[in-house]
Nucleic acid binder design. Structure first.
Lengths: 339, 339
DNA sequence: AGAGAAAAAGTGAACGTTCACTATTTGTGG
DNA sequence: CCACAAATAGTGAACGTTCACTTTTTCTCT
């Protein structure tokens, strides 16, 4: 029970000024941009700050400048989708740009999130909001001069982002790769269609199958869960001829594999399966999962960069390094035409 | 490019007062605790607030009260351990208690994190810090009257928390269950020993094996990774007699299973394997993973409750509901004595 | 109905910074 | 060496609340 001795107040700018023998305004100048100070005074202020272990009261500063230097990140409350890597990337970027990040997870659907976002955006508490989960698009933006809102490119409806394009092209590569291996009849198990990335992948799957003159047994609209993958395989007819499944992510793919094994089908002997995300365990499953490695950290960082740019009224730097990369592993093999 | 029309300032307490025909202090009173106001004035203030769409400037409030209402949560920067569920639980609890949470992920080891924590704790920016990753224990606390710091009970060194106890007892149950099924020779693959939970499990494993008169082939100190599990199995001699492996978590367990299969051992035929965490894919692996279901959300919530109590100087409510629950699945089976 | 207490409402300062000025010092060209 | 500009430093107000008081109103009891 260390009853801390002196409840000493933190030193203020004025005390620093007194110690340094200058005016408080000079200290303030020193703090903001140490230009325009004579070297001698600069040194005196510096010494005083050091001596008193002074650190500026950022709240008082915020109050005066009316800038909070804070951004909010919205997390989906409870879903199987947990954006941990993205979060880390986004947080790191924000910090690097000099912002403090406040994270809050909101339970409930896109509606609840949109509501909360709106509330946040014009609360004056934060300068911008980044949502890592889909919102219901509230058509017209706020009438209030509210803070900018960015929905992660991975999930966003406006497909300008790199995320969108890259996403699509990789599904196409996946299908082409399998077709090249002799597969003709496909199944896609999608993620929750509330996610733009899920819609995008589904769409690209359909058009690619069409474009290459292949057949799609269909698309099962899932929810990113393993169970949805298992169910999808269960619903397949015994001799439907499907030999390849494009699953929305690795978790779904694991479910697909399980479902196949339960029916006595071998993977990849009878059925090839692809996942998405390069989940840490994917390589250690049997069979090891073919997947798409996604730089989620960078995805989060990019989204945050977009937000920061919006806040500052500048144009975001677009990164062009490839974001996705297919990793072929054991869960995919030659199709019937090569067998 | 909607060049937002009026850059209208937010209304202040004084404007509300003017509209309501009362003093600013009356409005302030209304805002903080609407007690002590005559019903008629209460209504007038209420109407004025509504009319102006007034919302209090929390920064100004913070400045005056010297309370920020903010807590920080520290996440490990980049590790295989991502505390997403815990984060959600902690954030939700903090919000429910009226705090705003600021999350930051810190790269680097426990040293870097401890440094950053210290910095945060006496930055005056937050009223408390919750770390979801181990810190180097800085022996004596800060000399400054800094904000309280709580390291999650799951990870903390002081084992007072519920987390510690529950953890241990469940490892014992695991070993006992396997012993009851006829297993005699065990292997433990631990998590990073920087984590108190990893040390705790290891310790309980050792004492339980001892207590029941079983044999431990040894403990492999891992790092929560699948590869560490795979390596552990590889290092086993062909006829060492190990028939059961207690893995630090499901990811490690997946690696163990993989390693076993690669050696031509069947799971659970030749080797029983247990994981930890009830990872979403665990039930869909083949074999489905025996694991320990951990209410990580509540773990996070409990840790946050501890922090809030520390900040307020009150005693935290201890929850007593069981936190962990073994789920026996296919990856464990009878040992040699029953075969 | 009036005194006194309790309840309700008001007043001005303070929190620690930065902003918008004004004052002083330093430097420069003729 | 002086007038003048540029560089540097200083002064007081303002940001929007709450705190610590003081004043006014309302209620209660005799």
């Amino acid at each position: 029970m260390p009853m801390s001795a002196t409840p000493r107040r933190r030193p203020t700018i004025k005390e620093v000024a007194r110690v340094a023998g200058v005016s408080h305004q000079t200290v303030s100048r020193y703090l903001r941009f140490s230009g325009g100070l004579k070297e001698s005074t600069r040194a005196r202020v510096d010494a005083a700050i050091r001596e008193l272990d002074y650190r500026p009261n950022l709240i008082a500063r915020s109050m005066r400048t009316r800038r909070t230097g804070r951004l909010a990140i919205l997390l989906p409350g409870m879903s199987s989708f947990s954006p941990d890597r993205m979060l880390a990337g986004a947080v790191a970027t924000a910090r690097a740009e000099g912002f403090v990040v406040e994270v809050l997870s909101v339970d409930g659907g896109p509606g609840a999130r949109a509501e909360r976002t709106r509330e946040l955006a014009d609360s004056g508490q934060v300068e911008g909001v980044l949502s890592l989960a889909p919102l219901v698009s509230d058509a017209g933006q706020e009438p209030n001069a509210s803070a900018p809102v960015v929905v992660s490119a991975d999930l966003d409806d406006d497909m300008r982002g790199i995320g969108g394009l890259a996403d699509g092209s990789v599904v196409a590569d996946l299908v082409e790769g399998l077709a090249g291996a002799g597969h003709r009849r496909f199944l896609h198990v999608s993620g929750s269609l509330g996610f733009a990335s899920a819609r995008e992948r589904k769409q690209t799957y359909l058009t690619t199958v069409e474009r290459l003159g292949l057949e799609s047994y269909g698309v099962v609209d899932g929810d990113w869960s393993a169970e949805s993958g298992r169910e999808a395989v269960r619903s397949l007819p015994e001799d439907g001829g499907v030999t390849a499944v494009i699953a929305a992510n690795d978790v779904v793919a694991a479910g697909v594999v399980r479902g196949a094994l339960e029916r006595g089908w071998s993977v990849p002997g009878d059925l090839s399966v692809t996942g998405w995300d390069n989940h840490p365990v994917g390589a250690y499953l049997s069979p090891a999962l073919t997947t798409v490695d996604v730089d989620r950290e960078r995805l989060g960082a990019d989204a945050m960069r977009r937000l920061v740019a919006a806040v500052r009224g500048t144009v975001p730097e677009v990164s062009d390094a490839p974001l996705n990369r297919i990793i072929w592993r054991e869960s995919t093999g030659p199709g019937p035409e090569r067998a």
